[in-house]
Design a binder for these strands. Structure first.
Lengths: 218, 218
DNA sequence: TGTCGCCTCCACTCTTTGGTCGAGCCGTCC
DNA sequence: GGACGGCTCGACCAAAGAGTGGAGGCGACA
């Protein structure tokens, strides 16, 4: 009785990585892949996998909508969904869980944690990444946040220029203002911003600002 | 930098078991033991351990009360507490988390999970047993609020509804998402946002987010 | 030398946002 | 009753933001 997994991420490279990790586990089998929410829903309904590994940020229908369609309230044959994203942004977490996700992992999790998480979710239990758990508990307990010196790996992936743009962005500057300050064209700034959003797995500059504050970048 | 652990359980045999498990880990050290809540609090305040391994059911002051004393809201130097119990009884879980616990494990957890949990909690993160997580998620689906406000004069000019919109906006929600959450049309949200921006004399929602963070609204 | 990553830029979409004017509904206060 | 403020909504418009698919220059590195 192998656990059948459906991979959903818009980056084929990432799917390949996951597939390789999972192929090393005799009890796990990747039965399909999807690059966007719509085809994920379609595939999941057809293949009926035990667990869907779902990215949040995707073109078209995003992971949360797809999760809602597969595991949300009112779904007759809910399929277990394990969310995967770069950050544990509060809004994403809450929305994902509300959408019916059975777990929430960060993409920088070690491989063994990932496979273990899949087994846990397949078994009908649930699991959150420690940093996500902490934030959730902070809400429940409404306790003051402790001074944590979190290092966010994905932030390190940003190039110098991208980081520079992010900092200016987080101060409330528009693309045009950033362009003026860096003495480049607005087009260039837009390119940087787009890449920053993609790398950080977030939707728009507003969430970038929030991230900058949450991670202590500002 | 070893992690200093305080064991709290009314059964000496169990404490011995834990001590043996932890002694196999070079980075963990048991610095004390207690058999009831009162002495646990006293010991913890004196020894200032990195993590307290706390049983729930104990004679006299129970583990939840002790946790509240050590990590609850209003405590100046909170000590991290990892709850340990035989069952994941719902009331216990919620009360424990509300009391400030950083984690919740079942006593039948394998040794490696336990030591890993201690490391996670020591690092300032949090962790719940999968079965506990499952139940918690089931109820989380229906709560949100917190945060108190008005110390900034301009913020006081905002109406209740505008403040509500501002808070959601500051969490990264789009107009459409805010509309959905408040069960109004997107047009209405846009009206509110416009008025908020005008009253606060700022240009766009990005600056609103910044203001929310700077003023401690978030 | 060739490849690669980073930075730069343009053109072209499409969506979102912000602003404006107008409108109706429902309370409270006078 | 009438005035007023708050909340709601629609239509329309201009601007900004975001995504895509290119492109060239440049330095690093094998």
């Amino acid at each position: 009785m192998t656990t059948r997994v459906l991979l959903v991420d818009d980056q084929p490279l990432l799917r390949t990585g996951f597939r390789m990790i999972l192929s090393a586990e005799p009890d796990l089998a990747v039965v399909g892949e999807a690059g966007d929410g719509a085809s994920a829903v379609e595939l999941a309904r057809r293949l009926k996998p035990d667990v869907v590994l779902m990215d949040i940020r995707m073109p078209g229908m995003d992971g949360i909508q797809a999760t809602r369609a597969l595991a949300g309230p009112g779904v007759e044959e809910p399929i277990k969904v394990l969310m995967l994203t770069t950050f544990g942004l509060d809004e994403y977490v809450v929305e994902s869980l509300r959408a019916g996700a059975s777990g929430f992992l960060l993409k920088d999790a070690p491989a063994e944690d990932l496979v273990e998480a899949i087994r846990i979710v397949a078994a009908g239990e649930a699991l959150l990444a420690p940093s996500v758990t902490r934030r959730l508990l902070d809400r429940v307990a409404s306790r003051l946040p402790r001074a944590t010196d979190d290092t966010i790996p994905a932030l390190a992936e940003l190039t110098d220029r991208e980081m520079e743009v992010l900092k200016l962005l987080a101060r409330g500057l528009s693309n045009a203002e950033i362009a003026e300050k860096l003495v480049v064209s607005e087009t260039t700034v837009k390119t940087h911003v787009s890449r920053v959003l993609a790398k950080l797995d977030i939707r728009d500059r507003v969430q970038a600002v929030i991230l900058a504050y949450e991670t202590g970048l500002v």
